[in-house]
Design a protein around this nucleic acid. Structure first.
Lengths: 339, 339
DNA sequence: GGAGGTTACGTTATCGTTATCTCAATTCGA
DNA sequence: TCGAATTGAGATAACGATAACGTAACCTCC
């Protein structure tokens, strides 16, 4: 009758038959539940081995309503900031028996909503959202049906999610204060996506430092958080470039995107303009002049987020919110700090 | 009895009850199978909407033995070469109704094997493997149980997988020939992972060009395909740096990792040493001097691979193997090509 | 007006696993 | 040596969705 039994992957019943026991016994042995004799156990393991048996995850998940999968949502996987976070998260998830489903939303809120729905369909046991771009209301609605959620750089709904935030405000404030001490007075801000909470934090940091010296921002525009965004900011900045002697950028990509146009316009960095990025991606230390930036322990951040998520999945909501401090890395796009 | 029915997500039966029909009818309506009256259809859709019903993918997959998920395996997600491929693949997969499960194996063959097993557990409908590092035998064994496979930069088992290869041999040969025409004679090769087939192709290209002029490689060492690998090559190259006047690197990261140590040792690029990378990652155009490299249409590559995979899943094995040509991008780490 | 078709639904069985219950066989204490 | 406790293993029934089949009700045409 059945002409090609080889095409069907073996089921627990096949293993049971091969071992001369019932499927239930196979299940017990393979899941280490005990209650199986030594000899039986051996036969079952042998049979499973011989058939290359792999339990059907669908059946298992259907039965116990757990997927052993967690999701991580990032704005853009091509931005070097995020792969390191993903790697950190995966490093923690896998040993714990979870598969990581990473999704990038290409900086598009609609897509973000769609992806969160997809993860719901996949019935992930929990998820991490990096730099959510959705507005408060939509974000809440989208995460509500999920079993466990950790938000990175988006303090919202602490009642419904764990949060990990980088204290951009403090980091940026420290850098700007230092630049003011070095005589810079006319600050500009390449603000990144308007929907980013982290962007607002950075601006607060700048403004706090400036306010203490009676200064205020003379240039402040949003842009996409990539090289292209930096180039666009450059185009808008150049006409009034004499007004600005220090640019703070939402991230390193924007700062790097600014550098070539500035150089071509004859603007000397850092003499004519100091330049500060954020994230400390590898490229920032390779360009000349090397980029001053705020370093974030990206892989640690990913590991931390995943640990928090696993805790929440297990029902331990110990840590509700963590704040981590970025480290200023002084390089050549700012005047040398004297020892 | 059941105190918190709200915690259970609604099933097709719940929708059926709410709409006053049988579960089968709900299934028919929701899957657009026809065979449902207009009025009934409306009631079902309303009920589903009201309950925020989402079909259980496990049950569905268990029933039809399809997961609507495809995998993509990359050596290292932190290497900027791969996220673009992933993005391209996702761009094609999602509109076709597939979820992309991306896995990085951190340049570790054991991990690669493990990941391929995991994807088998998840019962992906197919998968793409980028630059497989497994040896032929293990690779064959690992992909055999999979339903559809596409290999990128690993021509193996064309009978069991579709392949897409970058013609590194031709690309590298063209670049080296040009450098020889410019007077370079003493070539070195930072060869990347010994297990990479692409690495062997690059070496063939170099040697073919050299052989035509009676030359041969004077330096040839493997390394990890990242900045660190470049730094390690630099340490080994510096003692005999006078022997070499052109370095061809497995990828841009290695080349970029070489640049700072060379500069610190007083080696002028390109005067004392020409430097060529491969991949054309964004950073290569940002450093000074900007890096000459072989550009690969990364996103296109990902899209192409995914289209091929979807074809294979659908049983159309039209394209068995595709070869794409890389584009030499001449920048400042090689002597200027005269118009 | 009845044979044959079509339409709109419901019933049943099944995918592979496992929780729960059941029962038989073995061990043990007195 | 007998009853009780323990252990090994099977039978059954779900989990949620749907293919296959069944069955009314209605339509059509000679």
């Amino acid at each position: 009758m059945d002409m090609k039994p080889a095409l069907r992957s073996p089921t627990i019943t096949d293993v049971a038959q091969a071992a001369g026991v019932s499927p239930m016994t196979v299940s017990r042995v393979l899941n280490g539940r005990g209650g199986a004799g030594e000899e039986t156990r051996r036969r079952v393991l042998e049979a499973a081995q011989a058939l290359s048996y792999r339990p059907n995850t669908f059946a298992k998940s259907l039965k116990n309503d757990r997927s052993n999968t967690v999701g991580i949502v990032v704005p853009d996987i091509v931005n070097p900031f995020f792969p390191e976070i993903i790697r950190g998260a995966e490093l923690v998830a896998r040993p714990a028996g979870y598969t990581l489903l990473s999704c990038n939303v290409v900086e598009d809120p609609e897509r973000e909503e769609e992806v969160l729905g997809m993860l719901l369909d996949k019935r992930v046991d929990g998820l991490i959202i990096c730099s959510a771009r959705l507005d408060e209301e939509r974000l809440l609605r989208a995460i509500a049906p999920h079993r466990a959620v950790v938000l990175i750089n988006r303090a919202a709904a602490k009642r419904h999610a764990g949060t990990i935030e980088v204290d951009y405000r403090a980091g940026v404030e420290a850098v700007v204060t230092q630049l003011i001490a070095q005589g810079r007075k006319r600050f500009g801000f390449a603000a990144g996506p308007a929907s980013s909470q982290g962007g607002r934090k950075r601006r607060e940091g700048i403004e706090a430092a400036l306010a203490r010296h009676g200064l205020s921002l003379v240039f402040d525009l949003p842009c996409t958080p990539d090289l292209q965004g930096g180039a666009e900011i450059a185009a808008k900045l150049l006409p009034e470039v004499a007004q600005v002697d220090a640019m703070i950028c939402y991230n390193d990509l924007i700062a790097l995107g600014l550098m070539k146009p500035l150089e071509q316009a004859g603007i000397k960095v850092p003499q004519d303009m100091a330049l500060v990025g954020c994230d400390d991606i590898p490229a920032s230390d390779l360009v000349s002049p090397a980029l001053t930036t705020l370093r974030i322990a990206k892989q640690d951040l990913g590991e931390m987020a995943m640990r928090m998520l696993l805790d929440r999945i297990a029902g331990r909501n110990a840590q509700q919110g963590i704040v981590i401090e970025p480290d200023p890395i002084w390089r050549a796009t700012t005047p040398q700090v004297l020892g």
